[in-house]
């Protein structure tokens, strides 16, 4: 075969050589790339609490994680693609966790396994417990359960594979690390009198100033409670009553509702007339 000009490959009319006929498949770069990535998801060997026992159980022979190319658990964050947060995240532990996450090379994914990692779980109100790892790290898949069974964890991992399958190299919103370069590292929390997220420093300062001035601090405004619905009126009364337009309703919508009510009234009048006629 003569010298191949690579740019010719771009052409859809490029003739497939005879000896390669039947041995070629055409796919997109994204698909190929995602297929290889999702089939070799290496989790970080990292157990926090009870869920770690089920994670090891999933990796063991009965449930066999290696069917999905995930059995290579790496001890080093620099060789892993997936961080399975398997258990309760405490304030003391979130500092090393964020540090480990920052050390993982992109593309990287986080799975919150179990109730504690997803939102604090049964230990939510504890003074040393972080109510969900998503307060500090972006989470891709949440697996419910306390602890999730191995089947649930496998389901979560397959869900993650589906998510990767759907990511497109062309769309930078999906996979920012191919477009704009590596992300900024997540700021590492500080263990002060309580745990301090550096991203909230301004808020903490404002609250401290309010405390000095003797104002109420660290208590947020609550959204108003939804009002209780009144007793439903009788149907006849409703039919004759004019449609009440709430003051804050969109005028276009209000107009449409009014027209609809008028049309309904006309229809009812026609029907009543027809009944009388019979």
């Amino acid at each position: 075969m003569s010298q191949l000009d690579l740019s010719e490959l771009q052409s859809t009319e490029f003739p497939v050589p005879d000896e390669l006929q039947g041995n070629l498949a055409i796919t997109s770069i994204s698909k190929l790339y995602n297929w290889s990535r999702r089939s070799s998801m290496w989790p970080l060997l990292f157990g926090l609490a009870c869920c770690a026992i089920e994670m090891i159980g999933t990796a063991a022979s009965r449930f066999d994680l290696s069917r999905f190319g995930m059995e290579v658990m790496r001890g080093s964050p620099r060789q892993s693609d997936l961080m399975i947060i398997s258990g309760t995240v405490t304030k003391k532990m979130v500092v090393p966790i964020v540090r480990l996450y920052n050390q993982m090379p992109e593309p990287k994914y986080v799975m919150a396994m179990g109730a504690c990692a997803s939102g604090g779980g049964p230990f939510k109100e504890g003074y040393n417990v972080v109510s969900g790892i998503d307060k500090y790290l972006p989470v891709d898949v949440y697996v419910p359960g306390c602890p999730p069974t191995p089947q649930a964890l496998l389901y979560g991992l397959i869900a993650l594979q589906k998510k990767i399958d759907g990511q497109s190299l062309a769309n930078m919103d999906d996979v920012p690390w191919y477009g704009v370069g590596p992300a900024e590292p997540t700021p590492i929390p500080v263990l002060g009198p309580d745990i301090i997220d550096p991203r909230q420093m301004d808020l903490i300062r404002r609250q401290a100033q309010m405390a000095v001035q003797g104002k109420q601090f660290a208590v947020g405004e609550l959204p108003a409670l939804p009002e209780k619905k009144a007793e439903p009126k009788k149907v006849e009364a409703k039919a004759t009553a004019a449609p009440e337009v709430a003051a804050d309703m969109d005028p276009v919508k209000a107009e449409r509702m009014k027209k609809r009510e008028e049309a309904l009234a006309r229809k009812r009048a026609r029907e009543a007339a027809a009944e009388k006629g019979e």
């Binding site: 109100e125 417990v129 109510s131 009198p193 301090i196 909230q200 903490i204 405390a211 947020g220 609550l222």
Partner: peptide
């Protein structure tokens, strides 16, 4: 839900 920090934290007045 009342915690303004959105996290399970509380700081002393004189932080």
């Amino acid at each position: 839900e009342k915690n303004v920090y959105g996290k399970n934290v509380r700081y002393p007045d004189d932080i």
